[in-house]
Design a protein around this nucleic acid. Structure first.
Lengths: 120, 120
DNA sequence: CGGAAGCGTAACCTACAAGTTACGCTTTCG
DNA sequence: CGAAAGCGTAACTTGTAGGTTACGCTTCCG
């Protein structure tokens, strides 16, 4: 829990997580999107890995990073009691949005399409 | 947003927030519950204040701290897209729990009771 | 087989977060 | 009015997070 909160506290790591929301990415491609050096990004990736927020998949000489959604829920559940009752509406809206997004993506790219992406 | 995430990353500050969930507290009483020195706690309180997660209310020579729920929602909304679809159930459960908790508290202590507490 | 591609790690530097002690400003009250 | 209560702030110390460069290990491919 402490690790998760700490991991999310850094803006670079939050940006990485946002990138991975769209698709899995190899370490090099992630590093290219930042101004900081590749080793610096590599360590951010390690922090994310150790916090359990991402997994890595080795493919040849590349290492792909993938979101590991499980741990996110912890933090959300910790935060829930603090959200003001009037904020519940917004949260339900967000939930709804998310449900639609998930459905749309499942239509767009089925499980089969997943094997095709990121093979450049 | 960065401030909020950073504020929550610290275990002491999370503990303070949890305390304030039950009732508002004066700075001294908060400090007493930790092993670290009072000035240290005082700075944690400042961080929380500047991040907008808490407000302070001056009463005589005491300074009470109160939760300011608004900012919490930001973080929750940022996290929402990452929570796995199967996690939605858990989140809805948490929501339900929270709703009941809120209702129970509103029954137990009405708005009138609020003026009575923490007047020791 | 040898060089390049792709990453991680080690060693080092620097800035900052978080702790401590000392101090000063209001407010309360005998 | 003066002392104590209640907090915040300043100044200082120290561990660690995050950046850089240098290096080494696999994997791919001409």
């Amino acid at each position: 829990m402490d690790e998760v909160a700490g991991a999310i506290a850094d803006p670079v790591r939050r940006a990485i997580l946002t990138m991975l929301r769209d698709s899995r990415l190899p370490a090099g491609e992630i590093a290219d999107r930042f101004q900081i050096s590749r080793p610096a990004v590599s360590r951010h990736l390690r922090v994310l890995r150790e916090s359990g927020l991402v997994r890595d998949e080795l493919v040849g000489r590349r290492r792909f990073y993938v979101l590991a959604p499980e741990r996110f829920a912890e933090l959300v559940e910790w935060l829930t009691p603090f959200v003001q009752p009037s904020g519940l509406e917004h949260r339900l809206d967000a939930l709804e949005t998310e449900v639609y997004r998930t459905r749309r993506e499942r239509r767009t790219r089925g499980p089969a399409a997943r094997a095709q992406e990121n093979t450049a």
